[in-house]
Amino acid sequence: MKFLHIADLHIGKRVNEFNMIEDQKYILEQLISVIESEKPKGIIIAGDVYDKSQPSGEAVELFDDFLTKLVSLAEFVFIISGNHDSPERLSFGSRILKKSGLYIAGVFDGKMNKITLKDEYGPLHVYLLPFVKPAVVRAYYDEEIESYNDAVNVIISNEKISMDERNILVAHQFVTSGGVSPERSDSENISLGGLDNVDASLFRNFDYVALGHIHRPQKIGRDEIRYAGSPLKYSFSEARHHKSVTVLEIKEKGNVKIDLIPLLPLRDLREIKGPINELIKIGKEDYKGSTDYIHATITDEDEIYDALGKLRQVYPNIMILDFDNKRSRSNISFEELSSEKIESKSPLDLFEEFYEAQNNKKLSEEEIKIIERLLEKAGGIEI
């Protein structure tokens, strides 16, 4: 039985104030092409369908169109809510939609949803576990639940999972393996303190675990516990990531085959660095690449008038502009001066240090005299 595993669509997301809806429409159409080629029995969407709990109208419309196509191409579609989704909104109409083979687990109601499929190898159970927090799970169990690991452990322990039959779990949590964390990026919402992690050892009864939440495709512990990753790059920390869709085929118990099919975006997220004239030259020679979303770092030492405007003429979708030169690399700043050091320096000394740090040159004698007069007029400050 073949499945397609995707996650973290984040439909409606804005990156550095750029609306990504056109890019998302393009990548969803590419996913449809993969489905048409692979012909899976089921489609798994492991949470964070939307980027916000109250998605925009265009985001809902795009997902509605995508979902309609999925139901027409696959016999079963399995969806869970992620930490960005509104469980109640995502669950709307879910009981009616089961008749079309669409199973949505948005709101956690005390247990995992279990759907049993059958093929020539016997029954295959798909368990749906939406994103849960310890406080939500405590409402259904008398057991002590302090952490996310406790919460997921209690849920799984209270299920009668047959080790002789094939089992798939769909979940949206921050999963670690023996204290080793997955590789993360800036676009993920990860809690601090380490209390939100769920250890992969809890999933030993499952032949495959389809995870959402982390945006880089990767395995956690064993090959069969996998993050599908987001289909698009949503931060420049993902610039070197290779996005893909996960295809898994489960035959008899213990026989799981996993393939990754690359996804190519309409516009990539790229980082470029160098003198401004060199960056402009490269952009003019690479028309397609120049339309990518760009984080540019200029290394010129001289000040450049309207650097962003000049770059935007070649790179219309530039998102971030930084500078890397002697001035930007200077370690001198008032924030780094201790109170003792500040008290030991005169206002003129402090201004001279600040000016040199910002402009990579010292004040001239004439400029010093001007600052002295200004400081005196400001209140007779000693210089």
Rank of each mutant, 00 (worst) to 15 (best):
K2Q: 10
H10C: 05
I11Q: 00
I11C: 01
G12T: 00
V15M: 14
V15W: 11
N16F: 11
N19Q: 01
E22C: 04
E22A: 10
Q24L: 12
L28N: 02
E29M: 13
V34F: 06
K39V: 13
I45P: 05
D48S: 06
D48K: 10
Y50S: 03
Q54S: 11
P55Q: 09
S56Y: 00
V60A: 07
D65H: 08
L67P: 04
T68V: 07
L70F: 12
G82C: 04
D85H: 05
S86P: 01
G93S: 06
R95H: 15
L102T: 02
A105H: 09
D109P: 01
N113V: 15
T116S: 15
D119T: 09
D119W: 11
Y121L: 06
L129D: 02
F131H: 14
V136M: 07
Y140D: 02
Y140V: 02
E144L: 13
S147W: 11
N149Y: 11
A151I: 09
V152A: 06
N153K: 15
V154S: 07
I155N: 14
N158P: 01
E159M: 15
I161A: 11
S162A: 15
D164G: 12
E165Q: 08
E165T: 07
R166H: 15
V170K: 12
A171Q: 03
A171I: 01
Q173C: 05
V175I: 10
R184S: 12
E188D: 04
I190T: 03
I190W: 02
S191D: 14
G193V: 04
L195W: 09
D196S: 13
V198H: 08
V198K: 14
D199Y: 09
L202H: 07
F203K: 10
F203H: 08
H215I: 00
K219S: 10
I220T: 06
R226Q: 10
R226E: 04
G229V: 05
K233A: 02
K243V: 06
K251N: 08
E252Q: 14
N255H: 15
L266N: 03
R267F: 00
D268H: 00
D268Q: 01
D268R: 02
G274R: 15
P275G: 04
I276L: 12
I282H: 11
D292I: 07
H295L: 15
I298N: 08
T299Q: 10
D300Y: 13
D302M: 12
G309P: 01
K310Y: 13
K310F: 12
R312V: 00
R312H: 12
Q313N: 14
V314I: 14
Y315C: 01
Y315P: 00
P316D: 09
I318T: 06
D322V: 02
D322C: 06
F323T: 03
N325K: 12
S328H: 11
L337Q: 03
K345N: 05
S346I: 05
D349G: 03
E352Y: 08
N359D: 08
L363N: 02
E365M: 12
E367F: 08
I370A: 04
L374D: 01
L375D: 01
G379I: 06
E382P: 03
